[in-house]
Amino acid sequence: MKLLSLLHRWTGGIVGILLAVTGLSGTVLLWEDSWIMLDGAHDPALADPVAMGRAIKVARETAPGLSRVTFAGDEIGLHQAVYSDGSGAYIMQEGTVVDRWSGMWERPELWLFDLHHYLFLGETGKTITGVLGILLLAFTISGTILWWRTRKTFRFRLWPPRYTASAIVRHHRDLGVVASPLLIVAAATGTLMIFPAVSGFVLSPLGEAHQKPALPAELAPVGPATDWQSVMRNAQAVFPSAAPRRLMLPSKPGEPIAIRFRQDFEWTPNGRSYVWIAPDSAAVVGMDDPAKAGAVSAISETFYPIHAAKVGGIVWRLAMTFAGLALVLLGLLASWSFWRGQIGKPAGRRRVAQRPRRAVGQS
């Protein structure tokens, strides 16, 4: 038990601040739809292929190198255009550009997303956040084991009563055990999203992972002749009752246009129903229906909406908000008290070396 306590304290002291950063950034992102206050941000989303085709044309005319357009939805009533150079724009559903940015630092929701997922370190940071998720799982399990010995002194507090080492430790244990079920859910879903190989291994008893259909690779490129209204109209005909969520332009010459839809049974906000369209003729050249994808795909699809509280309504969003804020307190106070104790040891607990006693008769 002493070894478990030692590992828990030292590892928490080292990575506690990083866990607090991911917890705080994730909590703010949970309420993203509430603090984006641009014109049209709270307009109801309209699934009109004609209006969407017009908005795509506006996005292409606004700047070169359009990469994708995320359509207005339940969270925000604006289309978001993203360009290959990292710039972007918000476009009202009737086609007016309401905001432009040249990089993520000009929009808080963009750099917060990058901080939460990548720690501003790209793919390396993504791997680090995955490791942090694994460590958080280990902390919740080991913390619950350590708490069990002191369960009779349990007292739930949102804040420690005093800033002494013992008070902070008791607060840490009691808050941690209350938040541990939610922290386990957040850590597990986040880690499984970052490490799909782990997810595939965990879910392998349920079947094989779903494979995307083969697509043509020698189509005519997107150009002035591309009829965006026909593109949206033909894609919508594949999933008539689904909501169009995102259009992705080909990353390589010859590839089709990809459009994501969200069907009623899907939890993921942007859906996983795909339609691929030929840029020149607007003909459908492929489709992928998650209703036919099997159990592994259905379970994997729930990781993000559970993690980001995109399902469960206000109750689950408040629960994950509590988990995020608890992680901030657990991480910051654990690191602060740990390093304060380590730095204070040499001055406060310095032992005076004693000279060995001489044997009787020695000079």
Rank of each mutant, 00 (worst) to 15 (best):
M1C: 15
M1G: 15
L3A: 13
S5T: 10
W10L: 13
G12L: 02
V15A: 10
G23E: 05
L24W: 03
S25Q: 07
S25P: 06
S25F: 05
G26A: 00
V28L: 12
W35R: 03
W35E: 02
I36K: 08
M37R: 14
A45M: 01
L46E: 14
L46Y: 12
V50P: 04
V50W: 08
G53S: 04
R54T: 12
R54G: 12
A55H: 06
I56F: 04
K57Y: 08
V58T: 12
R60E: 12
S67P: 01
I76N: 01
G77N: 00
A81M: 07
Y83F: 10
G86C: 03
Q93I: 09
E94T: 12
V97T: 09
V98W: 04
R100Y: 12
W101R: 06
W101K: 04
W101I: 08
G103T: 09
M104T: 10
W105N: 09
L112H: 06
L112V: 03
L115M: 13
L115F: 11
H116S: 05
Y118D: 12
F120W: 08
L121D: 08
E123A: 13
T127H: 10
T129Q: 02
F139N: 00
G143A: 04
T144P: 04
I145Q: 06
T150C: 07
F156C: 00
F156E: 00
T164Q: 07
T164N: 08
I168V: 15
R170S: 14
H171M: 00
D174G: 05
D174Q: 05
G176Q: 09
V177N: 03
V177S: 04
L182Q: 01
A187H: 00
T189Y: 07
G190H: 04
T191Q: 02
L192A: 06
P196D: 05
V198S: 12
S199E: 10
F201K: 08
F201Y: 11
P205D: 09
A209G: 11
H210A: 15
L215T: 05
L215R: 01
P216H: 04
L219I: 00
P224C: 08
A225M: 14
Q229G: 10
S230A: 15
N234C: 09
A235W: 04
A237W: 08
S241N: 14
A243G: 14
R245K: 14
R245F: 04
R245L: 03
P250R: 01
S251Q: 09
K252E: 13
G254Q: 06
R262H: 09
Q263T: 11
W267G: 10
R272M: 15
A278W: 01
D280A: 15
S281D: 06
V285H: 01
G294M: 09
I299L: 10
Y304I: 01
K310C: 11
G312V: 06
G313Y: 02
L318V: 12
L318A: 14
T321D: 07
L325I: 11
L325E: 06
L325Q: 00
V328D: 00
L329M: 11
L329W: 08
G331S: 03
A334I: 03
W336Q: 03
W336E: 00
F338C: 04
R340H: 13
R340K: 13
K345T: 15
P346Y: 09
P346C: 05
R350Q: 11
R350W: 14
V352C: 09
Q354C: 09
R355F: 14
G361V: 05
